[in-house]
Amino acid sequence: MSTRLIGISSLVFLAIYIIQESIIAQFRLPGGGFSILIIFALSWAIMSEREIAAVMGFSAGILMDLSQNTSGPFGQWTLIMLLASYAISYLGYGDDNFFGGALGVVFSIVLGNLLIEMLFLISAPLLGVSIGSFTQIFSTLFGTSVWTLFLTPIVLPIFAKLYKTVFQAGSLT
């Protein structure tokens, strides 16, 4: 992965982060809403090789840790996103990939999103982060999964096109 490619990808991640923090965060959606940054990072991770996916997950995690809304220690989201992106790329990359077709990709992103939230819930008590009541956790997990399932098919073609544009432009230079 060239320096130029890392630079362009970082700018794209930053733009998605700003959209998440400034526009999507305006709406208090039922069931907790969704994170466009997580959907974006997971969809790019599926399309990438393992090492690129790991770097992407690391970058997305750093941005999430930089968000003022994050309650855990700095680095918690970096670690979670790194592991989730690597795992999803491990399962999804190559000809003999685990997810067949677009529908499989959509479900893998929903499962990846759920895995990320579960990893946060598991690591939170170890790092001294309060997570709320059982009903609240359950409704958030359910709500975010439904939102991700609803939104991923809409944004996936855009993210795929963006990926193609960035990585084709990067490989030509």
Binding site: E21, A25, R28, G32, G33, S71, F120, Q136, G143
Partner: peptide
């Protein structure tokens, strides 16, 4: 000016 995000199960506003 902004609602908090759900990912961290935290309740914040800006």
């Amino acid at each position: 000016i902004s609602q908090g995000s759900y990912q961290s199960f935290a309740q914040t506003v800006t």
